[in-house]
């Protein structure tokens, strides 16, 4: 009986093993066609143009740098939106709002995380991108119809609850005595929050930001729909950029023979994504856990 119960846990382990094995195995095959140095350091990504005719099944250049910068650019924009909005929302909810407001607003904010990301992608295409294009035209800037900014902004909206929920938990966990100590010395509430409560809650808040970052890096649909396919190596948020996840989707949708460098490249990108998000999550969980122990 107990052994039967163990199968559930076994599946959970097998999933991880399966992910790691399949990604590593395919990446290994990829690296036999494309050298690691090219993958990591070549600033050009163009899998479609065949320039390496000497090798069987190989085609194009597979430098992941433009994808990595694109991913980071969009994630940075997302965090630039989500961090202040999420943090300030959490501060208001934890420190100013009465319990009634809190009971309504907190789940409302969390709705943002419950909306499927494909919906955000459509929202970006339908509303945000045209808005940016028109706004840019009005300001004399040319904003491409698929831009890092549009994708990043919408992704930022999506990640607000990841920041606000963890920050809220962290703020609430700060002992009341610290807040009262500051207020009793004649702090205004904001002084108490900024100088005492936030520093005390900083580990928890940081953990939330890391989770949001990991979420943004691994997000697929928003960028597939709003960021574009052009592997531009740029930090200009008004231009189209592409990301790791977009390229995975592009390389693997449509019919493809399974052993071509293109399909194998998708697995190498997947492994990269897996490792980066895993590291972020482990750090975030570690920080949050340590912090909880501190005040438990």
């Amino acid at each position: 009986m107990v052994a039967a119960l163990f199968t559930g846990s076994l599946v959970a382990i097998l999933v991880t093993v399966g992910i790691v094995l399949s990604l590593v195995f395919e990446t290994f095959r990829f690296l036999q066609i494309v050298p690691l140095t090219e993958f990591l350091f070549n600033p050009q990504w163009s899998p479609q143009t065949a320039i390496r005719t000497d090798q069987v099944g190989a085609s194009g250049v597979f430098g992941a740098i433009p994808l990595i910068t694109g991913t980071l650019l969009i994630s940075a924009i997302a965090l630039a939106v989500a961090a202040p909005i999420g943090l300030f929302s959490a501060i208001y909810l934890a420190e100013y709002a009465n319990s009634k407001t809190r009971a309504v607003v907190k789940p409302t904010l969390e709705l943002l995380a419950g909306i499927p990301t494909v919906v955000y992608g459509f929202f970006a295409v339908l509303i945000i991108a045209p808005l940016l294009r028109d706004g840019g035209a009005w300001a004399g800037l040319s904003v491409s119809s698929e831009s890092a900014l549009a994708a990043g902004l919408v992704m930022g909206i999506m990640t607000i609850p990841f920041v606000s929920s963890t920050a809220d938990d962290a703020l609430i966990a700060v002992p009341l005595s610290l807040k009262e100590g500051a207020l009793a010395l004649g702090s205004t509430r904001s002084e108490a929050i900024r100088q005492i409560i936030i520093p005390a809650a900083l580990p928890g808040i940081t953990g939330g930001l890391l989770l949001a970052a990991s979420r943004a890096i691994g997000e697929t649909m928003i960028v597939v729909m709003a960021a574009g396919l052009a592997a531009n190596l740029t930090l200009n948020p008004l231009e189209a950029v592409t990301t790791v996840t977009v390229q995975i989707v592009t390389l693997l949708t449509g019919d493809q023979e399974f052993d071509s460098a293109k399909t194998l490249a998708a697995f190498a990108l997947g492994l990269l994504l897996f490792i980066v998000t895993l590291i972020l999550n482990v750090i975030a969980q570690h920080i949050v856990k340590k912090y909880r122990e501190q005040y438990d």
């Binding site: 002992p175 005595s177 610290l178 009262e180 207020l183 009793a184 010395l185 004649g186 520093p199």
Partner: peptide
């Protein structure tokens, strides 16, 4: 704020700031 500057308070459990 001014009132509490004029009337200080010490609590039951010592609550030094994490500073």
């Amino acid at each position: 704020v001014e009132l509490r500057a004029r009337i200080g308070m010490v609590f039951q459990k010592p609550n030094p700031f994490p500073k």
